[in-house]
């Protein structure tokens, strides 16, 4: 598999704050690569070092064979960027923005195709400021992909979108990948990472904590738990059972994290049975990236 981005021991500090610490990873050609983590984890800083607009303090970045901050102009012809908090001129109309950004690139553009794909025809005469959040995101996505970039960088592409618009955004991003575009995106929505990304890099406090496909990450036992409802079991009883790491009880719904699910399940069943307590809705859950995330954060706190 060909790597289009290679990052080695990347670090960046702002004053005393270390935004990114010694991060290394590669992005394969044609995949959707997610950089996930909570707000302030260093996702945007990482992305902007790849885009070449922030210069790393330490480490190597290679994007499409270029060193981003040294050959920014060359790189900008080949990548597309959608920022998290930028706008275009408020009074600029959609069709004007599309024409303007097309004029920045020498290569043939796919303006008409994108207008149709994104359903922008009816909005051509609308000023940017008058567009709703979802339409603004669509337009800035169009502006980032006009020139058929080889890599598309999206910083929180579904921020502020309603669930329906978010799903539409996902299918657009998938479509772009099918056309051969590599996509690197950041998100703090774990659902987005699970459903959209081929591989994810999980970072927080500037450090890379995990790097894998969402499925493989979830196959790590850490996020697995048993869940059930019961009316009599106490926390003390559960935490003492073999294999149990952590117990969460919320309004009669139990979540038991264990490093040996089968054994723990057996003991839960037998203690309920012997004490005559009710037990219902028992399930083995693989968890979500959200759970995995909480798990990592709590482990961090203990250390």
């Amino acid at each position: 598999m060909k790597n289009v981005i290679k990052v080695e021991n990347l670090s960046k500090s702002y004053g005393d704050i270390k935004a990114v610490k010694d991060v290394s990873f590669s992005v394969h050609e044609g995949e959707i690569f997610g950089v996930i983590g909570p707000n302030g984890a260093g996702k945007t800083t990482t992305l902007e070092m790849l885009e070449g607009i922030i210069k790393p303090d330490k480490g190597n970045v290679n994007v499409l064979g270029l060193i981003p901050c040294q050959s920014l102009r060359e790189l900008n012809k080949r990548i597309g960027v959608q920022f998290q908090a930028t706008s275009i001129q408020k009074k600029m109309k959609v069709k004007e923005a599309l024409a303007l950004f097309s004029s920045f690139y020498k290569q043939e553009n796919q303006k008409d195709y994108l207008v149709e794909l994104l359903g922008l025809e009816d909005k051509m005469e609308v000023k940017f400021d008058d567009l709703s959040g979802g339409w603004k995101q669509r337009l800035t996505l169009a502006l980032a992909t006009l020139h058929r970039p080889e890599i598309l960088f999206l910083d929180e592409p579904s921020m502020g979108l309603d669930p329906h618009a978010r799903r539409e955004m996902w299918s657009l991003i998938r479509l772009l990948r099918e056309q051969g575009c590599t996509v690197v995106l950041t998100t703090h929505y774990m659902e987005e990472a699970e459903k959209l990304c081929d591989r994810v890099a999980m970072i927080y406090s500037g450090e890379l904590k995990a790097l894998n496909s969402p499925r493989d990450l979830l196959n790590e036992v850490a996020a697995h738990y048993l869940t059930f409802e019961s009316d009599g079991l106490g926390y003390e009883q559960l935490i003492g059972l073999p294999g149990v790491i952590r117990v969460e009880i919320e309004e009669g719904v139990y979540k038991v994290y264990s490093d040996n699910q089968q054994k723990t399940a057996y003991h839960i069943f037998s203690s309920c049975e012997s004490k005559g307590l009710s037990l219902s809705n028992f399930r083995f859950e693989t968890g979500s990236l959200d759970d995995l995330f909480v798990h990592y954060l709590e482990k961090e706190k203990i250390v």
Partner: peptide, 17 residues
């Protein structure tokens, strides 16, 4: 204002000098 609202930053990631 363009610098503040990110209009210029958007240009930074295009080939526009």
């Amino acid at each position: 204002g363009y610098r503040e609202t990110g209009v210029l930053r958007r240009y930074q990631s295009t080939p526009l000098q």
